[in-house]
């Protein structure tokens, strides 16, 4: 469900699913955990293909953030519509740095 691309030492992880819901959250978390355990700690999550996330999906993102630890960063790019609204409603927009584009997220993390 994920495709990855390394840019300026930042791992860009693109979610290739339209929904990250309770049925997909465990697989999402497993795949993200593998990226993190492979040593990546600057990650941009590209959500531009995603049009729905529920609280289980959001919980999986939070779990990844915890797994990254204090030296890691997880930025979110391309969240729109219902996805962006969920971040705001749950105040998770204070936890994750939200970027309009992957480019601006990569730029910030690689700086």
């Amino acid at each position: 469900m994920l495709s990855t691309d390394l840019r300026d030492n930042v791992l860009v992880v693109r979610v290739e699913e339209k929904r990250i819901d309770a049925s997909k959250a465990p697989a999402f978390k497993d795949e993200m955990t593998r990226c993190i355990e492979a040593g990546q700690n600057q990650i941009v999550l590209d959500l531009s293909q995603v049009d729905f996330i529920d609280s289980s999906g959001l919980g999986a993102l939070v779990s990844c953030l915890k797994r990254l630890g204090p030296r890691g960063s997880l930025a979110v790019a391309g969240a729109t519509g219902a996805v962006s609204r969920l971040f705001t409603l749950t105040r998770m927009d204070r936890v994750f740095a939200l970027h309009q584009s992957v480019d601006s997220a990569v730029e910030q993390l690689s700086a």
Partner: peptide, 10 residues
């Protein structure tokens, strides 16, 4: 970060 909720939001 350690205490950010992962569930119980539904």
């Amino acid at each position: 970060i350690a205490n950010i909720p992962e569930g119980g939001m539904g």
